[in-house]
């Protein structure tokens, strides 16, 4: 087990930031930590790294009890901060070497590794440039690169794509996938559900300091027992057909609005033939089905829209 968190409590004054929070992370896993602002994601990350003490519970990292003083744990973690924590007056190479030196790397190791990391983050041609001249996306990539210098076993990424263009975001996501494919263990937090869907092998949804749900994406979707939603547009709808549809026993609910039938079928769309038979003499313009996604899971479990919180 790389990370074991059990019933952790952390208070800041009257605010309970972590409330019996638990999480387990195995080697090679990529866990996406999802939660609205104030859910406790950053507190959780800082407690794992040992930056803040916890009030109760147990945290062990690499099988070692986390008391905040253990340098061995810190040596094996790469922390990608949410803020751009790089020196703008220094070149990309100087930044990489400086942050690498904090982990006790020798001059030779720093020189070799900075070239390797620059290649990974796509900045190999810009190493000698001052970072103040970089675009937001390049700075983000360098911010990640600085955490990779010591080749950590566990990478903790706290919203690594905040405030960048879609192209740079895609670059970072691809690069996270590459790291994951090489067996690096990654804890990834984000406001963007599609990012977590794209990179995480397992997802942990947290709110108000505790875990709401965790598991793989199909497991989480199964948890909300996804009612299938069918949207059928016809030229001219009628009340008579609405009653006929409601008479089909497998249909949970039918609503009619603006010549569109919204049909809810529990457990997936298996009765499309029956529905089409009822509506056969009406001109069907369009049929759409909507399967629940992670956004729906999040909304159902927390009652909040994640993106609105960002």
């Amino acid at each position: 087990m790389i990370i074991h968190i059990e019933n952790v409590m952390k208070r800041f004054g009257n605010n309970l930031a972590l409330d019996t929070f638990s999480l387990d992370m195995r080697k090679g896993e990529v866990i996406g930590l999802l939660g609205p602002n104030g859910a406790g994601k950053t507190t959780c990350i800082r407690a794992i790294i040992g930056l803040i003490p916890i009030d109760d519970g147990e945290i062990s990292v690499f099988g070692i009890h986390q008391d905040g003083k253990n340098k061995e744990i810190k040596r094996r973690i790469g922390y990608v901060t949410q803020e751009l924590t790089i020196y703008e007056e220094m070149t990309a190479k100087e930044n990489l070497e400086f942050f690498g030196s904090l982990y006790g790397m020798t001059k030779e190791q720093l020189a070799t590794r900075s070239l390797e990391v620059a290649k990974i983050i796509g900045l190999e041609g810009r190493l000698r440039e001052k970072t103040k001249h970089f675009s937001g996306g390049m700075k983000r990539r360098l911010n990640i690169g600085c955490s990779l210098m010591h080749d950590p076993e566990l990478i903790i990424m706290d919203e690594p794509t905040v405030g960048i263009d879609p192209q740079s975001r895609n670059f970072i996501l691809e690069f996270v996938k590459q790291l994951a494919s090489k067996g690096t263990t990654i804890l990834y937090t984000s406001h963007y559900i599609e990012e977590v869907e794209a990179v995480a092998s397992s997802i942990c949804i947290m709110d108000q300091g505790h875990t709401i749900a965790s598991g793989t994406l199909p497991e989480l979707i199964a948890r909300i027992k996804g009612d299938a939603h069918m949207l059928i547009d016809v030229r001219i709808a009628s009340e008579e057909k609405l009653k006929a549809l409601r008479a089909i026993p497998e249909i949970k609910e039918v609503a009619l609005e603006n010549n569109q039938y919204h049909i809810i079928v529990p457990g997936g769309i298996t009765i499309i033939d029956k529905i089409i038979a009822v509506l056969a003499d009406q001109t069907i313009v369009n049929i759409n089905s909507k399967q629940p996604n992670l956004e729906d899971v999040f909304l159902t479990l927390t009652g909040k829209q994640l993106r609105d919180e960002a």
Binding site: L51, R75, I77, Y79, T81, E83, G104, S147
Partner: peptide
Amino acid sequence: VRIAASPL
């Protein structure tokens, strides 16, 4: 914060 997260 990044420095505090390092062994230094």
